[in-house]
Design a protein around this nucleic acid. Structure first.
Length: 265
DNA sequence: GGAGATGTTTCAAG
DNA sequence: GCTTGAAACATCTC
C-alpha cells in the first residue's frame, strides 16, 4: 500500500528501535529485495551498530546506523512491522533486525521492494532526491516548467512521475485529479496556468492531509475522500453519487467520476 | 484458472 | 536526445 503517507507510517513503526544496537540480522538471502545489496553485505554492515536515525523522502526510507545507512523501498506490497524479540519470521519476512527487546521486520510478498546499503555521510540516493511535495521547494514555477516538458502525457501518468512528485502513487494521483475535477486522460499540455495552479494546490492539500491522517495516526481517510470508494465495484463518487469509472491510464488502473471529471471535449 | 493488485526499471517506438 | 507507453518483475486474492 505504500505511498507518501503509508511510508511515513511504516517508518514510524521502527521508531522504538532508535538508540538500540543490532544484535542479529536475519535474511532470506535469495529474496529479490537483495538485488542491489546482498544479504551478506547487509548482515555484515549492520550487525553490532546502533540505529540512530530514520528519514523518509517520498517513498524512499533511510535508516541510519552511524557508519552505515540502510535504504529501503517498500515497492508494491512491502510493510514494516514491530515484533517482540523472539518473533519467528514468516514466509514473506525477508529481513528481521534483532535488538534487545524487539525485532524490526520488513515483509514484502511480491518483492518489488528493495534494500540498499551505504556507508556514513548523507546517502547518495537522498542527495539526488527531488524536493518533497509538501516542502517550500515544491513550487508552482517548478510545476509549470515540468508541465511544459511533459505536455504530451495524460494527467494521471504525469502525477506518478517520482522525479517531480516523490511519494505520489496511484491512489493519491486519483484523489488529486478527482478533487480538482480533472479527467485523468487529459493531456498536460492542454491545461491553463490556473489549472496547473489548481493541481499544485490539490497536491499539497491531499499530501498534507494524508500525512496527518495516515502518516501520523495510522487511520484511513474519511468517507468524504475518493479513497474509500475507489476500489469497490460500483463505488460511488462522494460528491455527487455517480458510479465511478475505472480505466487504465499509463498502465495504472484509475478511478474517476464521470460527471465531476468529464473530459473537456 | 484468469485477471488484477497503492511501484519501478528497462526497452522500444515515435 | 527526448518523451511516452508497455512489458517484466513475484505472489496473493478475488
Amino acid at each position: 500500500m505504500p505511498e507518501l503517507a503509508e511510508v511515513a507510517w511504516f517508518a514510524k513503526q521502527w521508531n522504538p528501535g532508535l538508540g538500540f544496537e543490532v544484535t542479529e540480522v536475519r535474511c532470506h538471502p535469495r529474496a529479490r529485495i537483495y538485488r542491489l545489496a546482498s544479504a551478506t553485505r547487509i548482515q555484515g554492515g549492520l550487525t553490532g551498530l546502533r540505529m540512530n536515525k530514520i528519514l523518509t523522502r517520498g517513498k524512499q526510507m533511510t535508516f541510519g546506523f552511524g557508519k552505515a545507512h540502510l535504504g529501503l523501498h517498500l515497492g508494491m506490497t512491502g510493510s514494516l512491522l514491530l515484533k517482540d524479540a523472539g518473533y519467528i519470521p514468516e514466509r514473506h519476512d525477508h529481513l528481521v533486525i534483532r535488538q534487545s527487546g524487539r525485532s524490526l521486520v520488513f515483509r514484502d510478498p511480491r518483492m518489488f521492494g528493495v534494500l540498499r546499503l551505504e556507508g556514513s555521510g548523507h546517502p547518495q540516493w537522498l542527495r539526488s532526491a527531488p524536493p518533497e511535495v509538501v516542502s517550500d521547494g515544491f513550487t508552482k514555477v517548478a510545476l509549470e516548467g515540468y508541465a511544459r516538458r511533459r505536455g504530451g502525457a495524460p494527467l494521471k501518468s504525469f502525477l506518478l512521475q517520482q522525479e517531480m512528485f516523490p511519494g505520489i502513487g496511484n491512489w493519491m494521483a486519483d484523489e488529486i485529479l478527482w478533487r480538482g475535477g480533472f479527467y485523468p486522460g487529459e493531456r498536460v499540455g492542454t491545461l491553463e496556468p490556473s489549472q496547473i495552479e489548481t493541481i499544485w494546490r490539490e497536491i499539497r492539500q491531499v499530501s498534507r492531509a494524508a500525512l496527518s491522517i495516515i502518516g501520523s495516526r495510522g487511520d484511513d481517510p474519511p468517507k468524504s475522500w475518493l479513497f474509500p470508494h475507489r476500489w469497490r465495484p460500483g463505488g460511488k463518487c462522494p460528491k455527487d453519487g455517480a458510479v465511478l469509472c475505472r480505466q487504465k491510464f499509463g498502465g495504472r488502473t484509475t478511478a474517476w467520476c464521470p460527471t465531476c471529471q468529464a473530459p473537456q471535449s
